[in-house]
Design a protein around this nucleic acid. Structure first.
Lengths: 258, 258
DNA sequence: CGCCTTTGTCCCATATTATCGAACAGATTG
DNA sequence: CAATCTGTTCGATAATATGGGACAAAGGCG
């Protein structure tokens, strides 16, 4: 049940703990981080200087900040993903057509990871929720995640469901395994998944999987504030999403399996 | 003169070397990486498993790939930058108005680092060069870099120029310090910098600095293929760029020093 | 103006720990 | 079915990250 939480190389784990801490604070010095992580100053200092030398951190006036290097590494790895190469433009135009905040999502280690998110901002209220929207969450907690999960091989589904214990994020999160499995059947049937605010209260969305005979490449999603989304769910929005997902799938298949 | 190339913590340097190698290959196994880096298999394997456990790498079928975590870390650190918060929309609309490939660039450790790049693609030819455009390069090798460099404090300018030895990237790269210094005077005078293909042959661009009384926040740039850019440089493009930069600066100043 | 705190940085002995070679198992290929 | 590939595991050794303490400098406060 309990995963191997033993990380082989400790310095690296420590290094990323510092990065995480630095990420929350935006900018910090060695002492501040050492206190927060209850580590010796000198150790933290060593790590900071190491990361700075490698170009991942920038130091300004004794204080340290995350550099652009992480962004560049991340963007480069994203750009090589086939689903992104074939889906990027489609997601962007989906955002324009639907007027919603749209995402391109992939599965990663049992989590749904957003690798593209559009900037379409209808109103200020949505903007706030949009910025708060997490870039990574368990598959079962959101529409694109459920859309992907529903089309994974059965053994992987059970594996993922078993490992995570279906803890609730909001009052609407699916916490019962039977409910989840029956919902996935529905998703496979109708071709799209719905999130009624199961990850973030009030954030309602629709998502369709990008799936070929071989595997699931990811999912396309459109999100919005609950009040204005509820009626959209009964109209053309689901069709729009599934069309976009189909376009991307067709584009991938046409380009060849590679 | 020679910088401290001694990296305190060796495992971390090694870890990022593996990440770099993995970045180039997109996907690779332990043996392949071990051969490329001339390291023992087991060491590389340890690093891979460590990074995978931390969520930065994903393993699929024994092979490893960079995960979306780097992207998320990078995006989050970017989103907290004031120049990005105030400049994001302006750069995007600049791309629409000008019809060019536009960038928002900051200085980082003597380099120009692109933290936003638009997706406006006039033609296929530009798309290719656009994708090849590096996200990080020495300040003196490109328009936004020179625009930033020109407005840094004098001591930092000499410090940066001294450290880098002005090696040529193309035939047009500025390699003489006096030339560079006189060009920077021109840039300060006319308010914008020009790149006639000094970093990538044929990639011509204009850039204007986002500068307040206190400091340089970065630069806005517009790039295009050489043939179609040369005439644009004599027309309204430079004005468009400087206006955008001024808009962003005004937005930052208005929001307060914070 | 000077004290006192707090910062970042440096040093070095010690023991933690990352390393690395070899061996194992599974898959793939000839 | 043998021969290579792969990824993985194990364990002893030596390398090395650690962390306590000391230093200088900057900042705050009386």
């Amino acid at each position: 049940m309990d995963e191997d939480l033993v990380v082989p190389i400790n310095s690296i784990k420590r290094s990323y703990a510092i990065v995480d801490e630095l990420r929350e604070r935006g900018r910090a010095g060695a002492t501040e981080l050492a206190d927060a992580l209850s580590l010796p100053k000198s150790t933290v200092h060593n790590h900071l200087r190491t990361l700075a030398t490698l170009g991942y951190l920038v130091e300004e006036e004794g204080s340290y900040r995350l550099g652009a290097q992480y962004l560049h590494v991340g963007q480069e790895s994203r750009n090589t993903r086939t689903v992104f190469q074939h889906g990027r433009d489609t997601v962007e135009s989906l955002a324009e057509k639907s007027g919603r905040y749209c995402q391109l999502v992939i599965e990663e280690n049992g989590d749904a990871a957003v690798i593209q998110s559009t900037q379409w901002v209808p109103d200020e209220g949505t903007r706030a929720t949009q910025q708060a929207y997490p870039m990574r969450a368990p598959l079962y907690t959101n529409a694109p995640g459920k859309a992907i999960l529903a089309h994974l091989p059965p053994e992987r589904i059970t594996q993922i469901v078993e490992r995570q214990d279906l803890t609730a994020r909001t009052e609407l999160t699916v916490t019962d395994e039977d409910d989840l499995r029956s919902e996935m059947a529905t998703i496979r049937d109708q071709g799209y998944a719905i999130d009624r605010g199961e990850l973030i209260s009030g954030m309602v969305g629709v998502a369709a999987p990008i799936v070929t005979e071989k595997c699931v490449y990811g999912a396309v999603a459109a999100y919005g504030a609950g009040n204005e989304m509820r009626e959209a769910l009964d109209e053309s929005l689901p069709d729009l999403i599934t069309e976009s997902a189909d376009d991307i799938r067709a584009d991938i298949v046409f380009a060849g399996p590679e």
